[in-house]
Design a protein around this nucleic acid. Sequence first.
RNA 1: CGGGAAGUAGCUCAGUCUGGUAGAGUACUGCGUUCGGGACGCAGGGGCCGGAGGUUCGAAUCCUCUCUUCCCGACCA
Length: 510
Amino acid sequence: MKKNALSITREDDFAGWYQQVIAEADLAEESGVRGCMIMRPWGYGIWERVQYLMDQRIKATGHENCYFPLFIPLSYFAKEAEHVDGFAKEMAVVTHHRLMKDGNDLIVDPDAKLEEPLVVRPTSETVIGTAFSRWVQSWRDLPVMINQWANVVRWEMRTRMFLRTSEFLWQEGHTAHASKAEAMEETLNILEMYRSFSEDVLAMPVVAGEKPENERFPGADATYSIEAMMQDGKALQAGTSHFLGQTFSKAQNIRYQDKDGEFQFAYTTSWGVSTRLIGGVIMTHGDDDGMRVPPLVAPYQVVIVPMLRDKPEDEAVLDYCKALAKDIAKLRAFDEPVRVKLDISGAKTQTKRWSWIKKGAPVILEIGPRDMAENKVAMIRRDALYQDSGKLDTKFLAKAEFVPEIPALLSDIQTSMHTEANERLAANVKRGVEHWSDVERFYAAKKKYPGWLEVQWCKATGEELEAIEERLKQLKLTFRNVPEDAAAADGKCIFTGKPAVERIIIGKAY
RNA sequence: CGGGAAGUAGCUCAGUCUGGUAGAGUACUGCGUUCGGGACGCAGGGGCCGGAGGUUCGAAUCCUCUCUUCCCGACCA
């Protein structure tokens, strides 16, 4: 009788399942501070892998890391109106710098008020732009291409672990360029970097494309995103790249003299991915037994669970496992040493096994006295847990033959996780819907996970776009993006009946 | 930020209506029996009942405020 590791299935209660995965896989937990979470080692370890692999790509494309302050003077924000409007409602503000005793209570000292309040950065365009205005004087100073790994705070009304937390971790890249074309090229290069990172590293298929006007970053001329499809058919904006035009350079005076000695405003970009990616990985790859971590970002790719039973032979089993771990650690997969963990904690074998299944370690090896005697390993592959009968599919393999195959196995798991997710995405984007009534019917149907529609539209702007947005909102839908690889439009706008300009994805979103 | 629900042992929850010695399952610790697939028996440790006020001889229980979480909505690079 098959019994899953989690008590809530995706089918029954996707939101509850998501929370249970996070708790049972030791990814993160509540902190007692509204909207802020404690990232536990397994969850943070995944983020460290994202950081490590993304950082390499960021540097390989000519960017350098630096660090800007957490606190931003309020006045910096006032310079760009649209940007302020976008963030004003969710800003944490520091107004005092000292506490004092009031009887037994500790209170804010009213005499310690700051002359100018400091906001906790919700993003760093303003403070980085201010630095850019000093750094950029001549055409020779361009381009400036920097990145920072940091935490940011947005005082969200409704939070969900990893997907929308008040404080989150991210990288934010900021660049300034002499020409519009170069800045646009940068914006699109980064979009492609995010797309390939998501597909190749996270095994999370995405649709890369441009956001419509109403979904742009506050102050941006154009916003591009990668959109991933979660197992409930909802979209997750997993990364954004913004072409900021000259909006910020004009607001912050990022100006240079060109070769003719004329003053020109630079063109800037900004782009980021955050710990939200981990939420995406959970909802892309998780199953009813918990998390499944793609090998490239798994803190441990192979976990060895010795079967210890308080008997004299334990020591020999442990030695066998240590030697096995040592052999595996010498291997290389994906151009890195294989990350192997020997779990010598005192918990019972079964407890340990199910704990690593729930955490989603790609390969779990159980080693008992019999395996040792026969020079074998008992291998569980997390992405193919069960036999058809519903029993755990534990494979007993000759150690000498199995160990050298580990890099290929990890690679195979990575690929098959991507393939599985990719098939789901492909199967759940519906094209060819031409009438609004069909959209209503599609999303009104009791189907639990309807997925996305790709429709033709007239690329409305202004009030016309607002009206369309309102219609979508009735069905709890939003525009996701205009896929860069979508076919050219050849029909009518599904909203207005005008000639269509492009194809755009609509769906429910996180 | 509006509407709803909830906070009691590490976890899941009962007890609250009708105030009177703090409960269960699970997890944990010990001993014993098991031992290749989430074992069983016995014994044991663990909670000022989210926090602060109030009512009362007496509060997990009633009242007020507050914090946190979850669901729905609004909002959301």
